[in-house]
Design a protein around this nucleic acid. Structure first.
Lengths: 352, 352
DNA sequence: CCCTGGCACTCTAAATTAGAGAGTGCCAGC
DNA sequence: GCTGGCACTCTCTAATTTAGAGTGCCAGGG
């Protein structure tokens, strides 16, 4: 805890003061002056002494003042140190815990679970919640069904893995009856049921390119239809990340400039940047925090992002998190994100 | 066009001036002074004359000035008159038309179509698009399927009408095999396939309450499961209205106050008010316009809403529209909304 | 009667000024 | 190394000023 040439020297007392300063700043959002800090810190120090320490902390880059005659507020580096070394996380509030448990139940589809998780994150933290859709570890075709529509159109319903249902409409060369389509579906289910989707696609593409004499007309039609289904590029996931509670962010003083909000909401809409950011956290263990510009996206410059990967069967399948102003109650948010990740993982677990 | 005791007197010249004023105001968003108007109107009138006319128009409530020494801007009543009597709608831009045609295709599911329509509305108008999900004229159960999951859970897939696929997870009293579930599904499909959903629910609720000796175990189980499915209250529609392009609204000067935006975005999130508003337009013929407070929702006080019902098979099934600042290019927006409604209706048409 | 130029008047927006308050930095003394 | 004291800086608010835009109204002319 003493002299360390690589890190700026920051002794116990300074650490404690930094901590009190940040806690205070997080509470009221206003620069903290030496007098206030002297009172808050309960260390029997005069404000003059505090001022000296603050000057040091400012030199080291942990705090800054918006102008000469204002108190100090944390820099990104200050928050970083606070979060890494000074923070004692609060245990999760009992009510919140119950709410999470109650709502992240097993009897929900994948989409529902993810949406709920996002709503819970935003609801409990009163900030914005983001949840990446779970990556499919392997995407097995569980079942495929065809239903005739009007004209030559066919509704295709596909069940992937346990919980995911996709559907789309394809065109056929002629009108098929329900029973014909059932035959086709049966054929495909027998051939490909339980197989990996990528593999299925490959086989079908190959089939389409060569003529099989050993296939009857119905089988060929089936392959033809499957071709249409599996070549669609939205075969992957369509909406990769679910955001909730964006409007909460409009309540924070520090984000209240229309321009900032515009960028931020644009980012939420595009989802691309958010997704990339979350993607980086897939390999992190447990909660990870990006403070201000650390995220690398200008839209998030005024924000912090608290993320956690969530796992099914011990394997990370997605990332979720909370986005709020840098001045957020990290000690409260961290366990919320952590717990939500655990519970979402558990709820998604097929337990087979 | 002359004296009419019920309406304020507003002669040709005043109408023309009002029109020019509003067009100008829509263009630049700044109060229009008498001198500018004199130049714009190309009527060989002096600014003093214009001032007299403006005073009259202000008395009649068509224009107002933000303060003594500013030009005039339209009131809600002014816009109303403009929209009802003075407006000549522009024909729809060819490029936009093509884009609408290209993207509102037949080979899309209900959800996809609605989302596209909303995106198109917002993309072309550069404001916010809203599309109500189409009411089902009648909700016929097209097909129901069961798929076993782990534990005692069963994935239920339901096809309603032509395009709508719903799925959820239910719990059963014991684990059923795939073939057992197929039997159950067959039973239900035979019993209820093509029937109206409300009717199906009634029958099933009744079945559940009395013991049928004539039903075998499998049939009972099937009814049991169906009971779980049809009693769920999200049986209706889950997300009633799709909003797109909200962020576009942040670019408009008149909506740039954070407070206004907060309310507005809150309304978009809740969707309730938006839905109610759209609901009122179901019985309107063609495009309907709400200007400012006319909508009756304070969140939309600064906005205008241009709506149009859309129909399938000659019957109105939903409403779509555009939300933007009162100062919008109505002449351009109206045909966009109108055409989108037509094309969406056409795309949804099962043509059977 | 309607239109017009002219002029006094009003109001806003932007720039300027003044004063209060908060907080700092630094120094001299303990 | 800590402290009280003091001069200084900077922001925030309110008050004041000024320029500009636009009006309302009047009196004169077709």
């Amino acid at each position: 805890m003493s002299k360390n040439p690589s890190n700026p020297v920051i002794n116990e007392r300074a650490q404690h003061l930094l901590r009190v300063l940040i806690e205070r700043y997080i509470r009221d959002g206003e620069p903290v002056g030496s007098r206030t800090l002297a009172r808050d810190a309960a260390m029997e120090l005069s404000s003059a002494t505090i001022r000296n320490v603050m000057a040091d902390l400012e030199d080291m880059g942990f705090v800054k003042s918006p102008h000469t005659s204002a108190g100090r507020m944390p820099t990104v580096q200050g928050y970083r140190f606070f979060v890494d070394s000074l923070l004692t996380v609060q245990p999760l509030d009992g009510v919140d815990m119950q709410r999470l448990r109650a709502e992240l139940n097993l009897d929900l589809t994948r989409q529902d679970l993810v949406e709920r998780a996002s709503n819970l994150l935003s609801g409990i933290t009163r900030m914005a919640g983001v949840v990446m859709l779970p990556r499919r570890k392997q995407a097995a075709l569980r079942r495929i069904d065809f239903l005739p529509l009007s004209d030559k159109r066919v509704l295709v319903i596909m069940v992937i893995n346990e919980r995911e249902v996709q559907n789309r409409i394809i065109y056929t060369d002629r009108k098929y009856t329900q029973s014909e389509l059932e035959l086709a579906a049966n054929f495909l289910n027998e051939q490909f049921g339980g197989k990996d989707i990528a593999a299925v696609r490959d086989v079908i593409v190959a089939d389409l390119q060569q003529t099989h004499e050993d296939m009857n007309r119905m089988m060929k039609a089936a392959v033809e239809m499957a071709g249409q289904v599996f070549q669609a590029d939205d075969m992957q996931e369509r909406e990769d990340v679910v955001v909730a509670g964006q409007t909460n962010l409009m309540g924070f003083r520090e984000l209240c400039e229309v321009d900032t909000l515009h960028h931020l909401f644009e980012a939420f809409n595009q989802k691309r940047e958010i997704l990339h950011l979350l993607d980086q956290c897939v390999n992190a263990e447990g909660v990870q925090i990006f403070i201000g510009e650390e995220s690398g996206y200008t839209a998030l410059d005024e924000c912090s992002v608290v993320t956690s990967p969530y796992s099914v069967d011990g394997k990370v399948v997605g990332v979720l998190g909370v986005i709020g102003p840098t001045r957020m109650a990290y000690d409260r948010v961290i366990p919320i994100v952590d717990t939500t990740a655990r519970l979402l993982g558990a709820a998604l677990n097929p337990r087979e």
